[in-house]
Nucleic acid binder design. Sequence first.
DNA 1: TCGTTTTCTGACCGTATGGTCAAGGTTGAG
DNA 2: CTCAACCTTGACCATACGGTCAGAAAACGA
Lengths: 216, 216
Amino acid sequence: MSAPERLTKRDATRRENERVILEAAEKVFAEAGFGGATMQLIADMAGLPKANLHYYFPTKEELYRKVVSRIFEIWLRAAACFDAAPGPVEGIGAYVEAKMEISRRHPHGSKVWASEVMHGAPVIQDYLETTLRDWTAGRAAVIRRWIAEGKMAPVDPHHLLYMLWATTQHYADFGHQIETLNGGRPLSDRQWQAATASVKRIILGGIGAVATGTDL
Amino acid sequence: MSAPERLTKRDATRRENERVILEAAEKVFAEAGFGGATMQLIADMAGLPKANLHYYFPTKEELYRKVVSRIFEIWLRAAACFDAAPGPVEGIGAYVEAKMEISRRHPHGSKVWASEVMHGAPVIQDYLETTLRDWTAGRAAVIRRWIAEGKMAPVDPHHLLYMLWATTQHYADFGHQIETLNGGRPLSDRQWQAATASVKRIILGGIGAVATGTDL
DNA sequence: TCGTTTTCTGACCGTATGGTCAAGGTTGAG
DNA sequence: CTCAACCTTGACCATACGGTCAGAAAACGA
């Protein structure tokens, strides 16, 4: 499509600065909420003067909006698993694994998303009403098909999806609580695996998912 | 214990004002987060001058702390179901019902709690480390006993509890998302019942809960 | 009724915040 | 090298916020 596209030093700097700022913003927004976050805090964390932030992102709202969009992208990408799966064991199983991985790798983003929705989704209401609604309807259809094909018990697809979202996000959003109950230590690799396995087992068991292939 | 305790008009007013302020504060904190909430907003919603708020609650932090404590009380009270139950079907079933009812009746409180934990529990860390830890340990013991008695499958008690918390809280914390996906309308009575039933069915099924009595 | 305690509230204050700006530095194309 | 475009930043501004306070008003006990 495009020639090697000469990358000037300017372009590189811009890209890097935007990345650093977005990363810092994600963290600060997650830890303090939109209202509690300050541009100064984000600037300090990014290692840049505050005025420089306003050069790249004119307003706090704009910066916040970018942060939220990025998370939504990741969130949606995890949905791919769901599609080409032959049945609930593979589809939902892979989805749980993907979402647990997101909770682990992007805890800040997850919190920002949760915060945004909890506060009435002031900046992403349109996403909810378009992209998310479509996505949900599509997956609900898949689930209904699986039910019709006798691959799982007849559960309400929406409530199943809510349960999947809730359970997997919980490990990011309430990570602090979990850590505290874990003796103040973050979950180890092994514990994350156990968590993922638990979630998969209970949900797949609870919906009477029938393996389409050979395993379990 | 005490005589009828003459209720002066002063006492009544004080009590009423504190109630109104706490209620307004709960709502504003839930909708805007701690950082985004302002004393002026809370005062307006309570129908009192701002200075009056500071008469009853010296600082914003103090007011916030009271709000969070109240929620924790309610949250803990729901735990009672768990105790005297003969097995997981009754115990966990009742717990889910209680927590779903809380999500429905106290969505603001639930959000404040979630927000607080998400931001690292700056004001209730001590609760987490004492009361919540003890509570959790106690319930985990009950679950282990049920497992030993063959009343349910051997699942990790902690992950089961997390799933219960996550799933039930989700209907309050992400209520806006759910409402949007429900065509912009809040869940009806019937839909709340269906949600509760779904959650109970999937989780109880997923842990292979065996009824101790006669039903299901 | 009178004096005391408690409650109420408009006006005010210091601070911190989001955002601006102008001046100076850097980079890249011709 | 030159000049225009772009980037950087310390200093600055208006506003809004949490919190204070003095004095008025109301409630109480005797």
